[in-house]
Simulated scan of single mutants.
Amino acid sequence: MQSTALSYLHKHQERIINQWDQQLSALRSDGEIKASLEKAVEHTNQEYMNLILQTARLNEEDSLEGLRQFTEQYIQSGRSLTYFTKALQGLRKAFHQQLKDVPPVGEDVLDIYSDLNEWIDNMNNFLVSKYIESWEDTLEMQKLSLLELSAPLIPVFEGITVMPLIGSIDTTRAKLIMENLLNGVIKNRSKVVLIDITGVPIVDTMVAHHIIEASEAVRLVGATSILVGIRPEIAQTIVNLGIDLTKFPTKSTLQKGMQKALEMCNQNKIEL
């Protein structure tokens, strides 16, 4: 911030803060703020005001670090971006009102007005950017968690495990399927792995290629994979695309695949 605008801010800081505090207090009528405790909101307002005003007095790195930490804590509390942006608009209104009530003596009002606006805009851009980054990180973590759940390997009998697949299969998920298969086969000492594609809506060339690769990888670590859940429409699609699935056993249902797996492991069929 330019020295002229900064001097004006310091000179009238107390009145500007009081006017801004009134703007922030008005936000308590919002549905989001109503759910918070009164004292907690007051503490948040005061901390927020102090951090914003510090950015005008300190060097950029030192001042923004505190504001960055506050932003992260604020987001973790579950509040929305609305409070941030409305609060900064309240600060803008407080500055404009102060300039209107007490114009600077011997200084260009437009220069101070422009400088204060630029400072507030920079703060707004910074806060919005950090808010978006935090949510992107959260979404990425949730995406990874969902991916981990999207390719489970379930041991059902000694030497026999099942991997039920539901939903579409892209390159990222195919890589996870491969990793889970190999790690699970070794961990569970599996002899047979049933890959159940009953819940996979579309089996195209790419999906079939990923399944073939996974089955081949399973074979290389000493186990056999059986592809189950091949519905009539998927069987027709595989034939029309000319996809070769003759290198490993296939069954139409998980039940038939389980019977085959039990035979391969020399285990008696269990009647339920």
Rank of each mutant, 00 (worst) to 15 (best):
N50F: 02
E140S: 14
D170W: 14
Q69C: 00
V162E: 02
V203N: 04
V218L: 14
N124I: 07
L139S: 12
L146Y: 10
N180T: 09
A217W: 14
S190M: 07
F248T: 07
N18S: 13
K187I: 00
T171M: 08
S63E: 03
I112F: 06
A174P: 01
E133K: 10
K256C: 00
R28Q: 10
I52T: 01
I230F: 11
T138Q: 15
I52Q: 02
L127A: 02
L149N: 07
R28L: 02
T161L: 10
A87Y: 08
D101R: 12
M141E: 15
Q259I: 09
C265E: 13
S25Q: 12
P232E: 03
V41Q: 12
Y83Q: 05
Y74D: 03
I243Q: 08
L24R: 05
R79P: 00
E32C: 02
L53K: 05
A261N: 08
D108S: 14
L67V: 01
A223D: 03
M163D: 01
D170S: 09
I16N: 03
K143R: 15
W135S: 00
L245A: 03
H10A: 08
Q259C: 07
D108R: 14
F126Q: 02
P232R: 11
I166M: 11
Y83N: 06
K11D: 09
H210M: 03
M163G: 07
E32A: 06
N180K: 13
L147W: 05
F70N: 00
L139D: 11
E271L: 13
H210F: 12
S114Y: 14
D196K: 03
T4W: 05
D204S: 06
A214E: 01
A87E: 07
L272H: 15
E148H: 13
N180E: 08
R57G: 00
V105S: 14
A208D: 01
V221Y: 13
I212D: 01
V193G: 01
P103N: 08
A235K: 10
I160V: 12
A174H: 04
S29R: 12
N268A: 09
S29I: 05
